[in-house]
Structures are given as C-alpha cells and as structure tokens.
Design a protein around this nucleic acid. Structure first.
Lengths: 147, 147
DNA sequence: TCAGTAGTTGATATCAAGTATCAATTACTG
DNA sequence: CAGTAATTGATACTTGATATCAACTACTGA
C-alpha cells in the first residue's frame, strides 16, 4: 500500500478510468522506479504492455497532475511522480538525475515580474541544472574530471 | 545592415565556418522572421535550402549562442534570436508568441537556492507562461473568451 | 449469473522531427 | 587557377509518438 501507488491509481480512477491489469503494471512500475524516466524506458521495462497503452497511461497521469512531464533539450521528455504540489526540478547535466524542490522565493519573484511582463501570467516553469553530489564524488576520484 | 543579421553571420564566421549562399538564406530568413520559429517552419519557408543544411545551420547558431533553443511540451523546440545575453522567456499559451526578459531578481534567487540544493548549480532555465496582450484584446471582443 | 455495452488493449501502420551518408559541388588558399 | 577541404542536399534511416481498429475486458443492471 505504497502511498505513491495509491495516488497514481486514484488519479486514474478519479478521471473515470477503469482499473485494468495493464494500467496496474504501468503505475506500479513507475512507483518502483522512484526516479525520472522516459516513455521508451517504461516500454522497455514492460514488454508485456503495448507501447500505445504505456503512452496513453502516461498521458492520463500527466493530465491528472500525478506525473510531471519535463521537456529535455535533445531528447525525449522525462516524467517524474509529482510528490510536491507545485515545484521545480533539478537536472544533473552529467547523469540526468532529476530532483524536485520548492522554494517560496521563486514564487515571490513571480509577483515582482508581473509589472515587467506584457500580458497575464498564467504559469511558470523553472529548471536548475546541477552537477549532483554523486557525480561530484565521481569526478573527485579523478574518474572523469574534465569539464 | 541589420544588426541582428550581422550578428548571425558573425556568429558563424567566428566558428570558422564559411559564408555560403545557403547559410545567408537561412540567417536572413531568421532575421526577417523576428519571432520564434521551429526548424520545420524554416524548412518550409526555404524550400530552396536542404533540410539537412537548415538543421545544421540552426545547430551552429545555437552552439554559438546566437540563437536560443527552447523546449516546448508537445512539439518541436522553438528557436529565437538571443537579443539579451542571459535571459528567460515568456510564452503565450494561446498563440505561442515568445518574448524575452531579464530580471535581476531571478538571478538573485539562484544564490539563495544554493543552500537548498544538493550539488553544484551549473545553470538554470525559466519560462513564464502568459496570455499576451494581443490574445487578451482578442478575448475582450468576445471572439474566444472560453478558457 | 450473465448478457450487453462501453471502455480498453495492442499489433500494425503511420507520422513527425531529426540525423547519417555520401557523391557532387563550392569556397577558400596559395 | 588548380588543389583541397568544407559544404550541400537528396535519400535513407532512426526515434518518439500517435492513429486505426478488431479483439478483448471491466463494469452495469436485470
């Protein structure tokens, strides 16, 4: 009874969707991954579920807000379980690991931008590119210190 | 002698690339567009230039920093001429118009985030989704007021 | 319990964005 | 102006994602 899995199944049911074997496989796999993933990765991990179904289920989860889709320059978008209501992402530019954070200052900036910007602000997105601690540790050992 | 076009040609020459007819067509078209565009749009606008060349030229311009590539959820990335050194984008969620802005507060937030975040910050990206003034004006006339 | 029906599935075809190949062409150099 | 190295672009291909549609399955109400 993992809270995340419950959330994913609930998200689908809340949209009036049926609970099927294929959808259970997809949602539990996402929950077990506990890291950001691409649609293709999911398809590879679940050969017993059709591609179309994997893509459709992901779309439902994104539409419901249970998953967030983050666009990646040069590559397929990644998906991660939305653990925090409104949040932003950190992306390690070496290994691609995705994290989630929330900081009130970011939201406060939006208010001060309202005067700067022509039009109504309806949303925003922010990504912070980092070198994560794991990758920093690796390069400290001299394995791959070139930047 | 439009300053933007000079900048685009210079950007290519600075990378040791030759000035060719195809590249001139691409750069001047980008300069005339004065709005964000997709690679496919450019290809359609320039049937006399091969797709490969259009894509290659765009890549050179992005690598040189003269163009910025911004990822779009559900669709091909858009490109816009980088008029301001470091900046962020506004994207109208109705018509897709892309704007550019710079605000010191955004940069200041980064410093306060350094403590929050595990790892070294190497960059960031921010997009503000808006309804632009044109689209606001249109919906005021009752043409398309549903949201 | 079961039949009806509406939602779901997945193999396949297709589409769209973008890249690799490579022979022909072109820009630069001396 | 010849040599050579960069460039071009038609073509084929790759990858990510969607459309199609007949077969299947979950729910409903009797």
């Amino acid at each position: 009874m993992d809270p995340v899995e419950i959330k994913l199944i609930t998200a689908l049911e809340d949209r009036g969707l049926r609970k099927t074997a294929a959808r259970s496989l997809v949602t539990s796999r996402i929950e077990n991954a506990n890291d950001a993933f691409t649609a293709e990765q999911l398809c590879r991990d679940l050969p017993e579920v059709g591609r179309a179904t994997v893509y459709r289920t992901i779309r439902h989860l994104v539409d419901s807000g249970a998953l967030c889709k983050l666009p990646i320059l040069d590559g397929a978008p990644m998906y991660s379980v939305a653990r925090v209501e409104h949040h932003h992402h950190t992306i390690c530019s070496k290994c691609g690991a995705v994290g989630e954070f929330r900081h009130s200052t970011v939201e406060r900036v939006m208010r001060s931008l309202e005067k700067e910007i022509d039009g109504d602000i309806v949303g925003h997105r922010m990504e912070i590119f980092i070198t994560c601690n794991q990758c920093l540790a690796k390069s400290d050992t001299g394995a791959n210190s070139a930047v």
